[in-house]
Computed example of a mutant assay.
Amino acid sequence: MLLTISGLPGSGTTTVSRIISERYGLEMISAGEVFRSLAKEYEMDLAEFGALAESDDSIDLKIDERQKEIANTRDNIILEGRLAGHMAKKALKIWVKAPVDERVRRIVGRESGSFDDRLEETVGREASEATRYSTIYDIDISDLSVYDLVIDSLKWDQFQIADIISCAIDNYSDN
């Protein structure tokens, strides 16, 4: 089985992916973790690294090509990342959403900093990513029509969302 879990920063995709990974024994591949580790390697914060990625398509292409290759050559994995649903041809595709204020509150909780600073960073990062995705792949990140299931993480906690996804997995047919 190939599962993609996508969403904007702070929506809960990584947390839910880890729960599902453990529940089903699936390997998890996270584009966000790759992006964050690359930012650290370049000794930049996420906003700076996002700005660099805007001028250097090779950064996104490296991350996305790796996900595409994994999606097309392996089974029993979760691809977690903003474009994962677009990178995998045959998969159960899930989008986890939440309002920006809630997502920023979660980001502050895990990374610290002030709400206002994180809000500005998050809005800037999302605008940067939307521009890159549109320019590089002609993808409108706000178009959720490629997803089989869209879940609002403001309405349910991570375990309830994992239960909803489990129901979808247990009843999924890729015919």
Rank of each mutant, 00 (worst) to 15 (best):
R66T: 14
I59V: 14
L79R: 04
R74S: 14
D57R: 12
E69Y: 14
L61T: 12
I63G: 03
I59N: 02
I78G: 04
R74T: 14
L61K: 15
D64I: 06
D75W: 03
R74I: 04
D60F: 10
I77R: 05
R82P: 07
D60M: 09
K62R: 15
K68Y: 11
E69C: 06
D60S: 11
D57N: 12
I77G: 04
A71H: 01
A71T: 05
T73A: 12
S55Y: 13
D60W: 08
D56T: 14
D64V: 00
D57V: 08
A71Y: 07
L79D: 02
I78M: 03
N76F: 09
N76Y: 12
I59Y: 04
I70G: 06
T73N: 15
Q67W: 01
A71F: 07
G85N: 01
E65I: 02
Q67E: 12
R82W: 03
T73D: 13
L79E: 00
E65V: 00
G81W: 01
D60V: 10
N76E: 13
K62Y: 11
G85S: 06
D60H: 09
I77A: 08
R74G: 05
L79I: 09
G81A: 08
D64L: 02
A84P: 05
A71G: 15
Q67M: 15
T73I: 05
L83G: 02
D64Y: 02
L61N: 12
L79F: 03
L83F: 07
R82C: 04
R66L: 15
T73K: 15
D64N: 08
E65M: 13
K62G: 00
L83Y: 03
A71L: 09
A71S: 13
A84K: 01
G85V: 05
K62V: 01
E80S: 08
L61P: 00
G81E: 02
L61F: 12
N72G: 14
I78P: 02
D60G: 07
I63A: 06
K68N: 08
E54P: 07
D75C: 08
E80Q: 09
D56R: 15
R82Q: 09
N76A: 04
L61S: 10
I59D: 00
I59A: 01
G81H: 03
I59H: 01
L83V: 05
D57H: 11
L83H: 05
I59Q: 01
I70D: 06
D64S: 06
I78L: 07
I63C: 05
K68V: 00
E80L: 01
R66P: 00
G85E: 04
I77S: 07
K62W: 08
D60A: 09
E80T: 05
S58Y: 10
I70W: 10
R74Y: 11
Q67C: 09
E54L: 13
L61G: 05
D57K: 11
E65H: 13
E80N: 11
S55F: 11
R74K: 15
E80G: 00
E69T: 11
D64C: 04
A84F: 07
D56Q: 14
